[in-house]
């Protein structure tokens, strides 16, 4: 790592630390869910009586947010739009982490950009929703607003990099690939990029210790993941087995 500027040194260290906390923290959380037993069979019924049925329902819930759709259409619109746009944002960023960029990924970039640009809209909508409906205002804590604002700032700084204060894209890609390959190089000393990266690192560190673990936790929910077959197949409680 000889020859790195002080700024780069600091951000290389911060990036690795944040990545370690993100991956380590998330793995620890999910591992915890995986090994914690379900003493009793508790699917919310009516519920599929086969594993295949459970997987199909989970897929529908992941792809379409089916349960939320049932729960509240207005929240569904905002939440669903937000998550779909996140996919586009991911596609936009993948090209910075892969070299060479696969043709398909390159081809869908214009479309992904068109969608990714919209990210602030659902965020503002979700923020307003929390403020304007008395029930949501009551349940919302500073942390609930905070994480929306954090992601909004990330989105705005990212859009700034694209449309206002053009950054050295090649330099950014070099820097990111260097991080990935564990042979770091200097980062572009571009203020908008530094802000963007800093905010992203904050989000990464916050992720495993917050409600954002829902992203992985959704795969473990016993009311959705357990098969409704307690009469047909004896469910054994691991901690009560004698």
């Amino acid at each position: 790592m000889g020859g790195l500027s002080l700024l780069s040194l600091v951000y290389v260290a911060l990036s690795y630390a944040a990545a370690a906390i993100f991956v380590g923290g998330l793995m620890r959380k999910l591992w915890g869910y995986a090994v914690t037993p379900n003493p009793l069979c508790i699917p919310t019924t009516p519920s599929p009586a086969t594993k295949g049925g459970v997987v199909a329902r989970l897929a529908l819930n992941i792809v379409a947010f089916a349960d939320l759709f049932k729960g509240n259409r207005w929240t569904w619109i905002g939440g669903y739009a937000f998550h779909v746009i996140l996919i586009a944002v991911t596609v936009r960023h993948l090209r910075l982490f892969i070299y060479p960029v696969p043709p398909l990924l390159a081809e869908i970039q214009p479309l992904a950009l068109l969608i990714a640009m919209l990210l602030p809209l659902p965020l503002v909508y979700l923020l307003a929703r929390r403020k304007m409906v008395d029930r949501y205002a009551w349940i919302s804590s500073p942390a609930d607003y905070g994480v929306l604002i954090l992601i909004l700032l990330i989105a705005l700084s990212g859009l700034g990099l694209k449309f206002v204060s053009h950054s050295d894209l090649v330099g950014i890609k070099h820097f990111l690939l260097g991080l990935l390959m564990f042979s770091p190089v200097d980062m572009p000393a571009h203020p908008a990029f530094i802000i963007h990266l800093t905010l992203v690192l904050m989000l990464a560190v916050y992720f495993p210790y917050s409600k954002l673990v829902h992203a992985g936790g959704v795969f473990f929910s016993p009311t959705r993941m357990m098969v409704d077959d307690p009469r047909e197949r004896r469910h054994i409680n691991p901690w009560a087995a004698k």
Binding site: G32, G71, T75, V133, V213, H214
Partner: peptide
């Protein structure tokens, strides 16, 4: 353990 963590307070309930 899971339910204490994953609520995003969407308010659907």
């Amino acid at each position: 353990s899971l339910f204490l963590d994953v609520c995003v307070k969407c308010g659907a309930c």
